[in-house]
Design a protein around this nucleic acid. Structure first.
Length: 300
RNA sequence: GGUGCCAUAGCUCAGUUGGUAGAGCAACGGACUGAAAAUCCGUGUGUCCCUGGUUCGAUUCCAGGUGGCACCA
């Protein structure tokens, strides 16, 4: 029998967990999380990891499985998750890939080109160069080292330019020479579903969820990782804002307000990304039964 | 009940000596290959409360109405 990976994605707070558990139970599937923040064991409330009951209802993978100390990234996720997916397909015909991390989902579905990890020292040096000499200095260097990518890249985006430079510098070959721009073949079928609803309803859900997180002790959770706030894994909505509060920069009330706003913006950004993917079939979060019926017609 | 002030974007408010309007915040659209809950780019979305008057022309001036606020009863 052919193997099928069902992707269930959508903006933060839409209700992916609930729907995915119903779908997983129906198809006797397990859930592979594609969430770049729920993957960290130190984070729980602020990343809205599924509850104990939800985790017990269906086996979940890549939930709180790694440490914020690890230099985790989409490529590592691709490697580890694909390995696991292959193993699980020994037993299962259907698996769910559930989460809202756009790049992580693409890493599984389309793949990321193979290239070395960024050397932290090279990155730090480039960051310093950005601080001291400005973006223009990085641009000029990129123009020299990778003129092709220079033409394509967003020249106002420091992160993009720094990444292209660090790869070019480390390897001595232009960054763009590592990019194939062709999706990888996968030995399983992929079906993509995204959840969305009325924007106002989504915003209400997000705002309410943030209030619940605060009631559940997000502040204490953020304080427990405050000493690690420089880590990229903690450059995250729900934590950065509270760090600013702890640091006396903003009031607690303001921090909560900003967490809500930034969550809303993140949701919008996710929707923008998923909209571009024509393979995505859209459903309302209340349509678990419809999703199951539709999947029945697609699988086999 | 009387008097005064106010009514402009989703919110808080500018402004137009009469030629249909703009800031902040919010919101919306987009990009995206090892930081992706990251990073970056773009967009004003409006019966200027309603009705009438004056005027070539009213969001602006005048009158009345409605709503809000304040004070006096």
């Amino acid at each position: 029998m052919s193997k099928t990976l069902v992707v269930i994605t959508g903006p933060t707070g839409i209700g992916k967990t609930e729907v995915s558990i119903k779908v997983a139970r129906h198809f006797n599937a397990e859930i592979v999380s594609a969430d770049s923040r729920q993957i960290f064991k130190e984070l729980n409330i602020g990343t809205a990891v599924p509850s104990e009951e939800e985790l017990a209802a269906v086996p979940h993978h890549f939930i709180q499985s790694h440490s914020v100390e690890e230099n985790y990234n989409a490529s590592r996720y691709e490697t580890e998750a694909l390995k696991l997916i292959d193993e699980l397909f020994q037993q299962k015909d259907v698996l769910l890939l559930v989460g809202g991390s756009m790049l992580y989902i693409d890493a599984i579905c389309k793949g990321i080109d193979v290239m070395p990890d960024a050397d932290p020292e090279v990155r730090a040096a480039l960051k310093q160069q950005l601080e001291e000499e400005g973006l223009e200095s990085l641009r000029l260097q990129l123009k020299k080292l990778d003129p092709d990518y220079y033409k394509k890249v967003d020249l106002k985006n420091p992160n993009r330019i720094i990444h292209a430079l660090e790869i070019s510098i480390q390897t001595g070959k232009p960054y763009s020479s590592f990019r194939s721009d062709t999706p990888k073949e996968r030995p399983f079928n992929i079906i993509k579903i995204a959840l969305n609803c009325d924007r106002q309803v989504l915003h209400n859900r997000i705002n309410l969820r943030v209030d619940k997180m605060m009631e559940a002790g997000l502040e204490a959770e953020a304080r427990s990782v405050l000493h690690k706030k420089h880590l990229n894994s903690l450059n995250t909505v729900g934590y950065q804002e509270l760090f600013a509060f702890f640091n006396g920069e903003i009031s607690r009330e303001k921090a909560v307000e900003l967490i809500k706003r930034n969550s809303r913006r993140y949701a919008r950004k996710q929707i923008t990304w998923f909209r571009r993917d024509e393979a995505v079939k859209w459903f309302e979060p209340t349509e678990a039964a419809e999703i199951i019926n539709w999947l029945e017609t697609q699988i086999n």
